[in-house]
Design a protein around this nucleic acid. Structure first.
Lengths: 244, 244
DNA sequence: AATAAAATATGATATTAGTCATGATTTATT
DNA sequence: AATAAATCATGACTAATATCATATTTTATT
């Protein structure tokens, strides 16, 4: 009981500290478009941003939600997914530390077309819409940077379309493992640091959960990966690259 | 022989006229981001643009090409596709009259990730990179407009990913027919005005040409469409919408 | 008009992936 | 620690789609 209280206090204290931290000094902004803002703009944004801790599994926003700002991801990873008419969720993109979340809806001034769910504990800063929009319309360097970011997302989306249309489940799953390995890294023991359920793998790849499980089992038999519970360790990266 | 000469002369004359036409007065710009440029910017762009007629089947640019500008499509339709590792082309997007072509590569300052091929005779204006980039960096209204355009492309791409991953070939082909009907319209006799080969349909849907043909035959049997040669006429739009 | 080439069509068969059932583990809850 | 719930795993079967073969039709070329 006492321990729980201490724990809650510490968490709140950390939040408090985070709420106080300044965008101007934040290292994270180096990785996204916010780096193109001027010192003054950052100070202004800093004063109206709110910091949040989001727990694993928590929904950040739902499909159809109106987003009143963007999230700057300070730590953790989340998935962006869309519910298909057949009732299955399709993961469209994963967003990591350093990236912005929710830009698209903000720019289109539409409700979100995607749902965002935390894949591990996250720290994010929420920046209200009005601030960002104002900067987009005043600071051409910033808006060009956001534009480049979006152009990159679009290119990645094109690649995913081609993969979905032309590659087998086995190939797509192999590529998903490589992508997760390369983008999010591994734990000290070599297992993939982002822990996904088999269902998540299925909805990245666009297949039935059973099929994803089966293919992972096959990869295991072939020595391409090993598993410890839900943890997956890539044993033969080049082997995965050669999967057909 | 004489007829050929007259024909060539007329075509050149038309080209000449087109080269002379002014962006400021062009109706087409209303449909894309160019509408956000000032009168002065449009005059400047007008003076350095070149008009081109592109014949059906002609390649506008290849995957890997360096684009030195964007195309404003004055008439006609083209397909944007990407070659998959399995040797098949996947159509990622179709671009019609009124839209811009090649923005993404220009903004990322990368070579094109896609190939563009005319699906019917086209008229385009080519605007050199330097002009557009200058305006993007000076005119925030313009760059915000391009940003909105790109955000919309990204949303569409997300939808395609979900469809590819979760829907059957039959459903995807039905949706492709509806899309082509709604976006590009029909001829006086009711047939789809954009004439695609069965192979094109296959590479929109992401399936084998034979499968596309088979599904079209099935739609025909079910009375959803009729065909006259390669021409397709939608007979039951709601039926197509209900395809499972 | 005759021929060649390309595109469309369809059958037979193989492969891939989905579905349903059931059991084994793992994880959460009481 | 015991129970329930969720997740993972695998088998058996079915459905969807790809591949290969081969006509048939349409379009282009001589």
């Amino acid at each position: 009981m006492i321990l729980v209280m201490i724990y809650l206090f510490l968490q709140n204290f950390q939040n408090y500290k985070r709420g106080m931290s300044k965008c101007e000094q934040c290292i994270i902004k180096q990785f996204n478009s916010l780096k193109s803002l001027t010192k003054e703009e950052l100070v202004r944004i800093s004063s109206c941003k709110t910091s949040k801790v989001i727990k694993k599994g928590e929904v950040i926003f739902e499909e159809g939600d109106t987003l009143n700002g963007v999230y700057c991801v300070k730590d953790g990873v989340c998935k962006l997914s869309k519910l298909s008419e057949n009732g299955k969720d399709q993961i469209v993109k994963m967003v990591v530390k350093g990236q912005l979340l929710g830009q698209r809806s903000l720019i289109s001034d539409e409700s979100s077309n995607l749902q965002a769910v935390a894949l591990n504990d996250m720290e994010v800063c929420f920046i209200p819409k009005s601030e960002i929009i104002a900067d987009l319309q005043k600071n051409p360097k910033f808006s060009f940077d956001v534009l480049q970011d979006m152009a990159n997302d679009l290119k990645e989306a094109d690649d995913i379309i081609v993969n979905m249309a032309q590659k087998s489940v086995k190939q797509r799953l192999a590529e998903a493992l490589i992508y997760i390995n390369d983008s999010f890294g591994v734990n000290p023991d070599g297992t993939l640091s982002v822990l996904l359920s088999r269902e998540d793998y299925a909805s990245i790849v666009g297949t039935a959960t059973e099929s994803a499980i089966r293919v992972l089992s096959q990869f295991k038999k072939e020595g391409l990966i090993t598993t410890v519970g839900k943890f997956i360790k890539i044993e033969d990266l080049n082997g995965l690259r050669r999967v057909e």
